[in-house]
Design a binder for these strands. Structure first.
Lengths: 123, 123
DNA sequence: TCCATATGTCCAGACTTATCGACATATTGG
DNA sequence: CCAATATGTCGATAAGTCTGGACATATGGA
């Protein structure tokens, strides 16, 4: 079942430290952050942070690469995308009118991203 | 912190029975389902289901109304909307190009969202 | 090689969650 | 009022998660 992966991602984010960690990494998206800086920024012991990072990695929400002595973590938005898509896909089971407002409220979040289609001024 | 509500919703959905339950209720969106039918549909003892429904309700993901002997549950998409918005809002912290693909991939899910309020394709 | 730095792993105790039998509550009909 | 139905609550056990001290591994420099 595909939902197992979704549950893994939901459970990974359903924890304060991990949610903060993920958000922090998203904020540093192109570059990423070394594990030590993440632990310091969130005021969490390094081993605790390490365990949380492992959970996030297992859920596919973050990726890591070694860089000299540090290990740099980056957020991976693909799973988040799948998760959102999964939850909204279900809501669209034949009834687009149900989730249309959700999509609608989401769109103004990234207005300048689209060029082919104009975003209505609904803010 | 607003994230507490988000975590409550994430944790509520991060459990197979509850995720299935929520999806089931979304599928029956306008009408809802009585607790007994939910338990039967998911092959879960009624008291176990009752506990799960309480968790979903506490997270604001479902609402209930009494109808004679039955209690009808309905999915409430508002929290789901806030959750998605919250996760994507963070990803838009100054860099719309990061989450634009996510929004992009979501849009085809509900194409009629282009229309302002005239969604009326009755099934 | 030895040491300092950066991170990961192991483990065990504290805490939280899931499950279901038994009982309680609410509604309807006889 | 009593019985049947529908659902909720309690309590105890089992299972899972969070946390941080102690130890292990990997990298780079002296």
């Amino acid at each position: 079942m595909e939902s197992e992966r979704i549950i893994l991602a939901l459970a990974a984010l359903a924890q304060p430290t991990r949610l903060d960690c993920f958000r922090l990494l998203v904020k540093h998206e192109p570059d990423g952050l070394p594990a030590g800086e993440i632990a310091a920024a969130l005021a969490v012991p390094h081993n605790t942070m390490s365990a949380h990072l492992a959970v996030l990695a297992r859920a596919g929400l973050v990726r890591s690469r070694r860089e000299s002595r540090s290990i740099i973590y980056r957020a991976d938005l693909a799973v988040l995308q799948q998760m959102t898509l999964f939850l909204l896909k279900d809501c669209c089971g034949g009834r687009p009118e149900v989730c249309a407002p959700v999509i609608d409220s989401l769109t103004p979040c990234c207005p300048p991203a689209k060029e082919k289609r104009r975003v209505r001024s609904r803010v």
